[in-house]
Amino acid sequence: MNDQLLWLASAALILVGLAGIVLPALPGTLLVFGGILLGAWIDNFTKVGVLTVAVIAVLALLSWAMDYVAAVLGAKRAGASKQAIVGAALGTVVGIFMGLVGVFFMPLVGAALGEFLARRNHQQAVRVGIATWLGLLAGMLAKFVLAFMMIGIFVIALVL
């Protein structure tokens, strides 16, 4: 296959991966990493070596972990009960299957429902739900930052 087509595929994977950080149907970080790995492979790992790819892989794993812990940390910071934290985690999993709206709001719903079941307090349930949602947004921002760090390291390695 032509190297130009492979570079085009590498860039396309990275761009689609950036969109995937927000869109639940796409594994964003995995696609960004795949594009970077393809770019390193095209060059036979001469400019982007194995150590650089390993550093980028660690950043990718950290970004992937953000999906699972962000909403839970937001709930915990608001003084959530164990039921609210479980609800946030379950809401995150259920939200993945419901599209963009589900990804954004099901952790909030899960945490609020879990908190309400634990303490029967509407105000506390709403506060925990909102804190969960803010945690999720902070996690998404962190994933963007990590993805751009991955891309930056890759580009610097290519250029130098």
Rank of each mutant, 00 (worst) to 15 (best):
A12C: 05
L13D: 03
L13I: 01
L13T: 02
L13R: 04
L13C: 12
I14Y: 12
L15K: 07
L15T: 14
V16G: 05
G17A: 02
L18C: 05
A19P: 00
A19G: 05
A19V: 10
G20M: 11
G20F: 09
V22E: 01
V22H: 01
V22A: 12
V22D: 00
L23Y: 10
P24A: 12
A25F: 11
A25Y: 05
A25P: 01
L26Q: 02
P27D: 05
P27A: 14
G28H: 04
T29H: 08
T29D: 10
T29C: 07
T29G: 12
L30V: 13
L30R: 00
L31V: 02
V32M: 08
V32C: 10
F33P: 01
G34H: 03
G34L: 14
G34A: 12
G35F: 08
G35I: 01
L37F: 12
L37C: 07
L37G: 01
L38M: 04
G39W: 01
W41C: 06
D43S: 11
F45C: 05
T46I: 10
K47T: 07
V48Y: 03
G49D: 15
V50L: 15
T52R: 01
V53H: 11
V53R: 07
V55D: 11
I56Q: 15
A57I: 04
V58R: 13
V58N: 09
V58L: 15
L59R: 07
L61C: 11
L61D: 09
L62C: 13
L62G: 15
L62T: 11
L62H: 00
S63E: 12
S63H: 03
A65M: 12
A65Y: 07
A65P: 00
D67A: 07
D67M: 03
D67V: 04
D67W: 04
Y68M: 07
Y68A: 09
V69F: 13
A70P: 00
A71Q: 08
G74C: 04
G74T: 04
G74D: 09
A75Q: 00
K76L: 10
K76H: 14
K76R: 15
R77I: 06
R77W: 07
A78C: 05
A78G: 02
G79E: 13
A80C: 08
A80D: 03
A80F: 09
S81A: 09
S81F: 01
Q83D: 12
Q83L: 14
A84P: 00
A84E: 02
A84V: 01
I85E: 15
I85M: 15
V86Q: 08
G87V: 02
G87C: 02
A88N: 01
A88D: 00
A88K: 00
A89G: 11
A89P: 03
A89Y: 13
L90K: 09
G91E: 11
G91N: 12
T92M: 11
V93M: 03
V93W: 02
G95I: 07
I96C: 09
M98N: 14
M98K: 06
M98V: 13
M98P: 03
M98R: 06
G99Q: 07
L100V: 14
V101D: 02
V101P: 05
G102L: 10
G102T: 06
P107W: 02
P107C: 06
L108F: 11
L108G: 06
V109M: 05
V109E: 08
G110P: 05
G110V: 03
G110I: 08
A111N: 06
L113C: 10
L113S: 14
L113K: 01
G114H: 13
G114L: 12
G114F: 03
G114Y: 09
G114Q: 08
E115S: 05
L117A: 15
